[in-house]
Amino acid sequence: MPETLKMLIVLTVIAGAAGLGLAGMHDVTEGPIIENERNFTLRSITKVLPDAEKPDPCVKKDAVFDNEPMNDAICLDGHKIYRARKNGELVGLAIESIGDKAYDGTILTLVGVRMSDGVLTGVEVLRHRETPGLGALFTRCEYQQQMVGNGPDDIKWSVKKDGGDIDQLSGATISSRCMLNAIAKAQRLWRERGDEIAQAEPLEDSREVCDAR
């Protein structure tokens, strides 16, 4: 019986000590961790929001807005939309958009749209499972340069194989199409639901996940 008691005490003490230690550690690291996670999302958002007259995906952006686009998010039709404001006016949107029918599953992108004219200000692929070195090349800024900076009516938003203006990635037409599909969804939201987006109340907790993801 004393053996059992000893086991009980040793395990309890050690587990308790470990718990205490971890709790202390948690207090120390909680702040930096939240900050890091915020920055990570923020970086993708800033990457796609408008900064220059003619946005270039290969140039690093450091646009400053009046508000915190990260905390000014809404959900619409399952899309999560971050809003950027300048001088009291809504200037840009970063729209989470899913491209259907990728080579493997779907892709999740963040599409930046300028509020005034719908120009694509950036596209960031947040999640994909395309073939490395083939379909996955669509994450490269050099590839995105031919899309970013154009308005919805400036070019034909489909791959050359389908009669559009966008070069398909050699050997990965499906991935290219899929990216355009995600962009098209965001453009449609901007065109048809612009007012709604502008007027919607921001989410209480901007970390909320909208269902289409």
Binding site: I14, A15, A18, G21, M25, T29, G31, P32, N36
Partner: peptide, 20 residues
Amino acid sequence: IVVIAAFVTVVDMLLKAYQY
């Protein structure tokens, strides 16, 4: 296992905080 798991959790939190 408790000892090891505690150290692993610590290292995980440290990495997340300072080497994201």
